Amino acid sequence: MAAHTNTQYSREQRWSLHGMTALVTGGTKGIGYAIVEELAGLGATVYTCSRNEVQLNECLHEWEKKGFQVSGSVCDVASETDRNELANKVSSFFDGKLNILINNVGTNIWKPTVEYTTGDFSFLMKTNLESAYHMCQLAHPLLKASGAANIVFISSVAGVVLLDTGSIYAATKDVNCY
């Protein structure tokens, strides 16, 4: 029997994002945190944001110790002003070019549908849906300038399967919205 040669390669040999730039909204916890780590671990230079400055600084310090190229700033993506400022910071940081936009931010208010207020509705729509749409508009010139662009929306199974997450959250995370 002939000897079998090993054709498997390490992750580093198969995948590399060296030279690529990425913006991950809400990158300091949960899925966003894991995405930042993965992109940075593959060699991308990552910019992220969080509403929580203390948490952001803690994460930036951790990533620096790991040797990752990650920067970030405080931003509440529910605020149009904050989104505009974030886009300007990212444009400046990456010299007007961006390869990857990850619309990760999402939040929820857990209560029965009949108990939602118009303020609850507005907050969830601004945070989960409007911010992602607007970030795409703001990032478009940067993505186009890079010549190799990708946009990722983090959705939820709650958008297609009945879960006890609340009807407004489900509507904002419906994969068919995009």
Rank of each mutant, 00 (worst) to 15 (best):
Y169Q: 04
D164S: 07
S71M: 14
H4T: 01
T45G: 05
S122A: 14
E64D: 12
V105P: 09
G96Y: 00
A87T: 03
A170Y: 00
D82C: 13
W63T: 13
A2Q: 14
V114D: 12
H4S: 05
S91A: 04
E115Y: 04
L60R: 02
A149R: 13
L162S: 10
I109S: 10
D120I: 11
E85C: 14
A78F: 09
T7H: 12
D174E: 00
A3M: 04
S122L: 14
G19I: 03
D76Q: 11
C75Q: 06
K111H: 06
G41K: 00
Q69C: 15
E62K: 14
H61N: 15
L101Y: 08
S79Y: 02
F68Y: 03
K97H: 06
T7R: 14
E58Y: 06
A171V: 01
Y33G: 13
V54H: 12
I102Q: 07
N52E: 11
D120F: 13
P112C: 00
V54L: 09
N128A: 05
T165R: 15
R14K: 12
A40Y: 07
L124C: 13
V161K: 15
V70G: 06
K144G: 10
T165K: 15
K66A: 10
W15G: 12
R11V: 14
S92M: 12
W63Y: 10
G119F: 05
K97Q: 03
K126A: 08
K97S: 05
P112G: 08
S16R: 04
F94R: 03
V161N: 13
L163T: 13
T165V: 11
S73A: 01
I31P: 00
V160F: 03
V160Y: 03
V36M: 06
L98I: 07
G166L: 08
A132I: 00
T5Y: 02
D95S: 08
T48I: 09
E12V: 09
V157H: 10
F68D: 00
H18P: 12
T28S: 08
N52S: 07
T113E: 03
S156G: 06
N176W: 00
V70D: 05
V160C: 02
S50D: 01
E85I: 15
I35V: 13
A149K: 11
G19R: 09
C136I: 00
Q69N: 15
S71W: 14
M20P: 13
V114E: 11
T5D: 02
L56T: 07
K65N: 08
L101A: 11
T127W: 00
N104A: 02
L138V: 02
F121Q: 09
D120E: 05
V175H: 02
T48R: 00
S10H: 09
V90L: 01
A3G: 06
S73H: 01
Q55I: 15
C59W: 06
L162M: 10
K173D: 01
L17H: 05
T28H: 08
K29F: 15
F94N: 01
Y116N: 08
G67E: 05
N103Y: 03
Q13E: 05
S156E: 04
W110N: 14
G32C: 12
T25S: 08
A3Q: 11
L142C: 03
L124M: 14
S92A: 13
K65Y: 06
D95G: 08
G27C: 11
G72E: 05
A158P: 10
S71D: 15
E58H: 03
N52G: 12
K111T: 07
V152T: 04
A139Q: 10
N104D: 00
W15E: 09
